[in-house]
């Protein structure tokens, strides 16, 4: 791993200042993606700005569910308010990576990285979440802009994710047998003002499946999805699965997600 200068700011303001002073810096939250990427030489930032000292973790439940950006997957998975308000989100967090990764990895880190096979982006998009940053609030529909890219400006840092409370929501993923990342994961929600369905793992970044949403608008049940075909426009093929196979999996996983929705 290339060496770097290490910063451990105690406030969001100091973190942003450090990022602005060092244009080649990277923020690090749990480091469960960034450190492996650096070990493989895929990333070599001049400076690491560790957000660990911000102690920005925790969950609050009111008319919406707010999860602070530094909350680990393990904390989300076991939090009573998350389990009560959006059990699908707790279940999603409980199946990210493995227990050791879940002790370190955070929701803010996951969505800021926007890995095309990560789980959390599908929950944010599927539920119509709002991403809070140091500077503004961004709708999930505008936040995820493609493969490993987001609407975050240089130095902008995610501070929390706010989820509206759905009537029902469910998540199902087909994990790659080796990496356990989603080959396809589908997050569905009956929001009370329409159905949303967000797909991860398809290759180009998380997206909403209009075919699934259209079918669920007629009735939020797995039966509504019988015969629904999703096109391959947003879907990539690779050595693990062809684009056609992944597109087929979208309907299969959407059905399972609807069946599991609570």
């Amino acid at each position: 791993m290339e060496n770097f200068n290490y910063h451990r700011p105690a406030s969001v303001d100091d973190a942003v200042k450090a990022a602005k002073a060092h244009p080649e810096a990277k923020y690090m939250s749990g480091g469960q993606t960034l450190i492996p990427a650096m070990k493989q030489g895929l990333a070599a930032p001049s400076d690491i700005i560790d957000l660990g000292a911000l102690k920005n973790s925790g969950v609050s439940l009111g008319s919406s569910l707010v999860i602070k950006a530094g909350t680990t997957h393990a904390e989300v998975a076991s939090n009573a308010d998350v389990k009560k308000a959006i059990p699908a989100l707790a279940g999603l967090a409980a199946n990210i990576g493995d227990p050791h990764v879940r002790h370190k990895g955070t929701i803010g880190g996951s969505i800021a990285n926007n890995d095309p096979a990560a789980d959390y982006p599908s929950a944010c998009l599927g539920l119509g979440a709002t991403i809070h940053t140091n500077a503004r609030k961004i709708a999930a529909d505008d936040f995820f802009t493609g493969l490993f890219s987001t609407a975050l400006e240089e130095g902008e840092v995610v501070t929390a994710v706010e989820f509206p409370l759905p009537k029902k929501a469910g998540y199902a993923k087909f994990p790659n047998p080796a990496s356990r990342y989603a080959m396809i994961g589908v997050f569905v929600a009956d929001t009370g003002s329409g159905a949303r369905a967000a797909v991860t793992g398809a290759g180009h970044g998380v997206f909403r499946a209009k075919e699934i949403e259209g079918a669920l608008a007629k009735g939020f049940s797995a039966a509504s999805l019988n015969g629904v075909k999703v096109g391959t426009d947003n879907v990539a093929g690779d050595l693990h699965a062809s684009a056609e196979y992944r597109a087929h999996l979208i309907t299969v996983m959407a059905k399972r997600a609807v069946d599991a929705a609570k």
């Binding site: 480091g31 450190i35 492996p36 560790d50 227990p99 050791h100 002790h103 370190k104």
Partner: peptide, 13 residues
């Protein structure tokens, strides 16, 4: 008190 992968953690942190 929590299990973590020590190969995926910076000592300085």
């Amino acid at each position: 008190g929590k299990a973590v992968k020590s190969c995926t953690a910076l000592a300085v942190a």
